[in-house]
């Protein structure tokens, strides 16, 4: 599903001493099935933006259009919106509340009015997608699981609602390297196999470089760039000036280039960088 915003602005606590405009005049248009990355310094308005995508926040001015429907339209009930746009918040494990993993994941689909057998199918499918063993874990209490497993259960709880747009606010923060890769891989699979559009908020440039089709760069509530990772990471100086950096792999290439190696520094994923360095070394060393 495509998402569009038109000069979207949000001001918190209007009319008090604490008034603060968190996002200003944000306009963009995404395509269906796209994997979008959202990066920006802490406090730049990323979480504020994503809460507009399922009407948890209403714009102070401007509008949000999801799949051609203006969300400010009163005729669109909240249930219809959350059915299409699923949001996984920062540290989603804090939203678990049921006695068993199964019941917790089934909460969303049940609210949306799916039947028992449909819900059962959806729960199995969602658990499978985030690599949780259905038979082993369905009757466990979610509070007895490890941090990474809780995170997966929470993500499965949103996935089970079959959203066509999935928004994730730092889904991998605070996990070990294996855990973070597992979760990000699952997200990519949802994108590639079922065609869910993804919005991924991340502080990790390597993840963004690896997974995203296009990247939004926010600074102080404004959308500075919205381009492919290749183009975004070409603006190394700009990124640095707003408190961000380029992926590690690209950093290495840039440093090598600075020291006089003839590498092409436009690559930004780890695999590409390795290949490029190997090529350069082979070329430099006369056999």
């Amino acid at each position: 599903m495509a998402v569009e915003t038109i000069s979207l602005t949000h001001t918190y606590a209007v009319g008090t001493a604490f008034e603060f405009t968190a996002i200003k005049g944000v306009t963009f248009k995404t395509l269906a099935h796209e994997f979008i990355g959202i990066i920006g310094h802490t406090g730049s308005g990323k979480s504020t933006l994503i809460q507009h995508l399922n009407k948890l926040l209403t714009p102070t001015s401007g509008s949000v259009i999801v799949n051609g429907f203006d969300l400010s339209d009163k005729k669109m009930p909240m249930k219809e919106i959350v059915k299409r746009v699923g949001i996984v918040f920062q540290y989603p494990e804090y939203q678990l509340f049921e006695e068993t993993v199964y019941k917790d994941i089934a909460f969303g689909p049940t609210n949306l009015g799916f039947s028992k057998s449909e819900t059962d199918f959806l729960v199995r499918e969602a658990m499978d997608f985030v690599s949780l063993d259905f038979e082993k874990l369905k009757d466990e209490s979610p509070f007895d699981l490890s941090g990474g497993q809780k995170r997966r259960v929470a993500i499965a709880g949103v996935l089970a609602m079959k959203p066509q747009i999935l928004v994730l606010d730092e889904p991998a923060s605070g996990l070990d390297p294996v855990g973070r890769e597992g979760i990000l891989r699952s997200i990519r699979r949802m994108n590639k196999e079922i065609g869910i559009s993804i919005f991924l908020v991340s502080h990790n440039m390597d993840d963004v470089a690896e997974y995203c089709d296009r990247v939004m760069v926010f600074s102080k509530g404004e959308l500075l760039l919205f381009e492919s990772p290749n183009e975004v990471f070409a603006h190394a100086d700009l990124l640095e000036s707003i408190g961000l950096e380029v992926p590690q792999a690209k950093k290495v290439l840039l440093m090598l280039k600075e020291r006089g190696f003839s590498v092409d520094a436009s690559f930004y994923t780890c695999d590409e960088a390795v290949a490029e360095i190997a090529r350069c070394l082979r070329q430099a060393k006369p056999c």
Binding site: Q51, N54, L56, M78, K79, V82, K83, G86, I87, F89, P92, Y94, Q95, F107, G108, N111, L112, G157, V158, M161
Partner: peptide, 16 residues
């Protein structure tokens, strides 16, 4: 703050 976060998360899961 925590309450606000939880309410938003459950609303996103279709809680009414």
């Amino acid at each position: 703050e925590e309450l606000d976060r939880i309410v938003k998360a459950q609303k996103s899961r279709g809680a009414d």
